[in-house]
Design a protein around this nucleic acid. Structure first.
Lengths: 118, 118
DNA sequence: TATAAAGATTGACAGATGTACATTCAATCG
DNA sequence: CGATTGAATGTACATCTGTCAATCTTTATA
């Protein structure tokens, strides 16, 4: 699962020979790839993208009751999407009385961005 | 589905009143959210993250036969993951004789990065 | 032409995902 | 207390996803 290998450039070779040398998988970077995948996967739904977009735009805490009517799905579904984002570490929430306020935790997205721009 | 709304800040109010005003959904930005979700979804698997990572590191065309042994899954599965990345516009491929060479199309990832850093 | 190799495709299957509907929980108000 | 409200949880279900085994296509070699 290592991605830090030096891949030898391909060249024509006679048939009957294996294409590639066996490779050792030192399992480095696998964890980072898994973290990136978790964050990306959580962003892999249009509603969740828009939820994050709203939360980022407002750069503060937004009540769920303001998020729910933005979408064509029911309140439990929005709650489910928020839970997915929370489990990925992209957002967190805070209760105040009857209302729940969600906000972005920038670290997860920052880490993804750092990898994307590396 | 619009995310460009001004959300009124919550405040305590007597019960018996609806929480939020009805909202109009001008369907703006929905397409962008869907594009972001498509790209993010394609990156939502550790193997695909590592595939992209390898391709980006090498900043050139890499033979599938060099990618396949990097992972613990079979060749058809790697081929499937490459197809997912191709359909998301993240990579493209080119055949040369028996071999297929894959490379990154930076635009898709750049667009995602731009949204993430906006 | 026959054989072999790289890579794509197909079919199958277990497990995950998005959604709706119903229910539950927690907090507030009368 | 009892009723109401915002939000989370549980259940059910159709669809999607990742994987493997087998097969197919294309190209190159003998």
């Amino acid at each position: 699962m290592n991605t830090n290998l030096e891949l030898s450039p391909k060249q024509k070779r006679p048939a009957g020979q294996p294409c590639c040398e066996p490779v050792v998988y030192p399992d480095v970077e696998r964890k980072q790839a898994e973290r990136m995948a978790v964050v990306a996967k959580a962003l892999g739904d249009p509603i969740r993208v828009q939820l994050v977009d709203v939360l980022r735009r407002h750069a503060g805490k937004v009540c769920v009751c303001e998020l729910t009517p933005l979408f064509d799905v029911g309140q439990p579904t929005v709650s489910h999407h928020l839970k997915v984002l929370r489990h990925a570490g992209i957002v967190d929430s805070e209760r105040q009385g009857l209302w729940a306020y969600y906000y972005v935790l920038p670290d997860a997205i920052d880490e993804l961005t750092r990898w994307l721009t590396a």
